[in-house]
Design a protein around this nucleic acid. Structure first.
Lengths: 267, 267
DNA sequence: CGAAGTCTTGAACAGAATCAACTACGGTGG
DNA sequence: CCACCGTAGTTGATTCTGTTCAAGACTTCG
């Protein structure tokens, strides 16, 4: 079993020559839902930036200078308490926009950190703001993105407040599967899984120790297996059951799509 | 100690003759931050509707026909699990807009219910959508409202994932104080508190029994007192300390405002 | 090969849930 | 006016889910 089949791991692609060829364009604000402002946006683009795993991208309290689109890799947004407690709020995957809040807030209320090595498309915040202002269709996409994120975090609130550790972990795995599948980044039932137990714990309100025990339970019941940085879902039906998700959640267009904000989901 | 001093309880005001005189205009999308579209919005307004406590306002899965502005009273939005578990996601107070998501989502992902008797200003969703589309400044306000809500729920995520019951309850009380103070609806340190223990429990991921014990602890330490439907904060400094909030949180314009999304907060 | 970081496992502990009984209260109707 | 009733809140005893602490094993990488 190969530990790093090339198309699942975080690659280091060359940036597209122009935004028109951008791999994540259909996922981005300026290329989604039939609209295509890649010509205009390419003038706003500043650079492509490589960011190493664990590097901070934005810090709470700072005024964001840049807006980013994720081209490759994973990042996460989080809050930190003075005593060190951390809550991870969500994950950014390729195509997601980072610091949407720069459009309206002077300062960041949360921090963002690279989980893996990343490639980011960097825009100047002020120019991006002006670009959005001049293009109502893009502004509408931005608000759609914000609402989609709300739906995701609302479901996460339900996770944290009212679900068991087993349910939480199963849902995180399936959620991630759905988001990666939407990007064509799953290979059958196998997909990239760069999260350490500490990340999962800080996402779901658990401890790393208990995350370990929870995964053991899922493994022992034959629901999934983990090798290196990849997860494989072995029994999708059982996973959905323990996650309390509808049977059609993993199919492209389940009837319950609106309830989970699944299809086009900014972090 | 009177159980219902008139200006704190949920009144039944007569609707303003025109939107220009609307009491909550400065809080609403169409009247905030210096802009004033009360003339235009009055054409979009359909009616003023009285809603009794406990009535459902919107149901998850439905396509919302209306958009509402809260004129008076409290409502809450929540998710429900098939087995009856409930997660309350947030509260709507006077001036907040209900079903912002109608602007972009065909169906509701959550339900909304009246907590107290309410007075709602009702708009037709389609016409409201058109109105927003025609007024970029209002659209910008809508997105600002969405981002503000994100900040609130992000902090709630931190509550649920990483804070103790005592911290959670203290924060909910202070959060509510700040939101009501912003509306001029506090009388010294006393304010309306229509939440039953079950609501608090479903908001904070606790049980009603444990909420009861937690309030006992706060009472016994002299931090607050509750009489009927009103809370009084007796020791604000100690409350802030146990909530882990900065000293200036309750002052009008604390340095940390951006971290809590406090000042202009849609539910 | 060694070292640091991560994961696993066990044992003891704690915070909150559950179960169940009892109390306080506001409203209703006799 | 008061007895009754349903709802909400309180309190205690017990259980449970998840935490904490600590030791050992496994990876990964220099």
């Amino acid at each position: 079993m190969p530990l790093s089949s090339s198309h699942l791991t975080v690659a280091s692609p060359k940036p597209a020559a122009s935004c028109a060829d951008c791999a994540v364009k259909p996922l981005a604000l300026y290329g989604a839902r039939g609209i295509d402002f890649s010509a205009e946006i390419s003038k706003v683009r500043r650079e492509c930036r490589r960011v190493a795993a664990r590097r901070m991208i934005l810090r709470a309290g700072e005024a964001p200078q840049d807006v980013y689109t994720v081209l490759e890799g994973w990042a996460y947004r989080f809050l930190l308490l003075p005593d060190g407690r951390r809550q991870i709020l969500g994950y950014y995957l390729p195509g997601n926009i980072i610091s949407l809040e720069a459009l309206h807030m002077a300062r960041m209320h949360m921090s963002v950190q690279a989980l893996t090595d990343m490639m980011l498309c960097v825009f100047d915040a002020e120019r991006f703001k002006a670009f959005v202002k001049d293009h109502p269709a893009v502004a509408a996409e931005a608000e759609r993105a914000c609402i989609q994120r709300t739906i995701l975090t609302d479901n996460r609130l339900m996770d944290l407040g009212r679900r068991t550790a087993l349910e939480k972990v199963a849902r995180l795995v399936l959620d991630t599967y759905a988001r990666l599948a939407h990007r064509g980044r799953v290979d059958g039932q196998t997909f990239s899984w760069p999260l350490r137990h500490e990340h999962i714990a800080d996402t779901l309100g658990l401890t790393p120790v208990h995350v370990s025990r929870t995964f053991r339970a899922l493994r022992q019941q034959g629901l999934l297996e983990i090798h290196g940085q990849e997860v494989t879902i072995l029994d999708a039906a059982a996973m959905l059951l323990t996650a309390g998700l509808p049977d059609d959640y993993l199919s492209a267009d389940g009837r319950h799509r609106h309830l989970f904000g699944k299809s086009i989901e900014p972090a």
